[in-house]
Structure formats: C-alpha cells, structure tokens
Amino acid sequence: MRFNNLAELIELAEKESKPIYEIMIEEHVRETGETREKVVAQMTESFDVMMASVQRGLKEDIKSFSGLTGGDAKRVYEYAQQGKTLLGKQATEAVAMALSTSEVNAAMGLVVATPTAGSCGILPGVLSSLSGSLGLEKEQLVLGMFTAAAVGYVVANNASISGAGGGCQAEVGSATAMAAAAAVELAGGSPAQAIQAAGLALKNVLGLVCDPVAGLVEVPCIIRNGFGSVLALAGADMALAGVRSVIPPDEVIMAMYNIGKVMPVELRETAMGGLADTPTARKIEQQIYGNELNEA
C-alpha cells in the first residue's frame, strides 16, 4: 500500500483527484495482482452475505447460542415502520439492521467480519440505511465498503481491531469510524471529510472496554452495534456539515492504541470485569455453564 496513515491516504486521494474507495481498489490490485473486476466481484459477494444476514435477522426469530438474546432487531424494525421514532425512520432502521446482523452472529450464523464479528453489524446497518435514505444502488454501496476498508486498514495496522488487544473501542470503535467514512463518500463528501468523520466518530468511543457477559458475543456487544450505526451516521453528518476534529484522526488512532495498551486485562475480552462482573452477569454465567467453568 502506498499509504500507512490517514494523512497519506488523503494526500494520495487529493493528488490524484480520486475518492478513497478508488485509491483502495487500485492499491489492492497492485498488492495482489488481481484484476479490478475480480476485486470488486469479491467485495460484492461479501456485500451479498452481509445483506442476507441483515434480512435473516429481520425476518426470523433469532435465538442466540445461549438463548440470552435475539428478537430485538425485529422489534426495532417494526417500531421504525410506525413512523414515529425520535431518531427518524432511516437512522432507526440502521439500528435495527445493525442489531439484526449482530443477532445472526450471536446465533453462530453466517456473517462478514467488518472488521470483526463482534462489530459486524455497524457497516451493514449504515449501508442498508443509506440505500434507503440516499437511494443508492448496490454497486455504489459496494464501493463504500472499500472506503471503510481503507480506514480499517490504517486502524488495524497502527492500533488494533481486537477486543482482547485494545478493548471494545478497537472493535465497535473501528467499525464506527469505517462506516462513518463510507457514509461520507457515499453521500458525496470529499476524502478529507470522510477521514474527519472517522476521527470524530472514533473519538466518541475511546476507552470503551470489552466486557462480554459470560464470555459471549451477545451482551453488551449486540446493543453496542446498534448504537455504533447511529454514531457513524452522526459523525458523517457532522463532517459533511464541515466540523473538523481538532485532534487529527491519525492522532485519535494513536490515542486509541495507547489507551488499549494501558487497559487492564480484566477489561479486554476476558469476561473478568465491567458488565461481565456484575451480579446478574455472574448469575447468567452460572446458569449457562453450571460448574464447568470452575473445572477449567
């Protein structure tokens, strides 16, 4: 890749007068030697899997691996159809679709990790909502996935996209930043605005810990995906309005990395702290595993 951080990415995009997704596709072709058609076709396949998981969660009565979660996506989607939501119909639908994908994931269903499975709801939630609000075609949404990938690439190589490595900020946070940037480009914003949106959104999840109840990717992961989708849309709107992050987005990523490094191990996907260490969480754990855990 010819860029290692977001500043270099914007510089490339501006110098060549191309959107971020175009730079990302070209870099991919250069790195792998595959044709552009093949790369776009592969992304389209991932898009199809993503949308199938969105739809599955809205139609089926999903029950998770543990029986703890499921059905919230349907609930929120039906509520959005009544047309009286506080966020507005499109943003509420983004929440429903983000929840939907995450519920399918918790049920050991087929999903696309974007960038992780624990945060797999945010990008599809935002993309499906945009297809409604902006009337975008599938081909355009697939291009937006490359914008998201470019931001994720920088975060993954400069910080972390693993809850065990850097807490939930590294998963839901990264996904939110990726989706925010994609939303800006799909709405016709500039590469610089897209990166600002990523920085703005990421700032709001710094410090978010990974504290999965009973070690399951369910509570609070699913709900956090729902919130992440709205946060991404809000970040995109702010950036499109001209808001800039005072701390440059690359430095926000650096801050995320540093916070992850000093985050106690109890709060990095070990189910030892945070929500996982509440009386209710411990009771749930006991109900699911009985005494098996103690033996381990």
Binding site: E45, V112, A113
Partner: peptide, 25 residues
C-alpha cells in the same frame, strides 16, 4: 510488514459467528 494487507483482511472473513478473533481466527 503490515499484518493486515488489503481490503479483505478488514472486510472479511465471511464466517460463522460469533467472534472473528475467537472463532474465525
């Protein structure tokens, strides 16, 4: 060398849930 090389290391894998690091990895 970067551990994550291109788009499909970020968008992907297509996988059975629930965790990319704990299940797919």
């Amino acid at each position: 060398m970067s551990s994550f090389r291109h788009s499909f290391d970020i968008i992907g894998p297509v996988m059975i849930g629930p965790s990319s690091s704990h299940t797919a990895g």
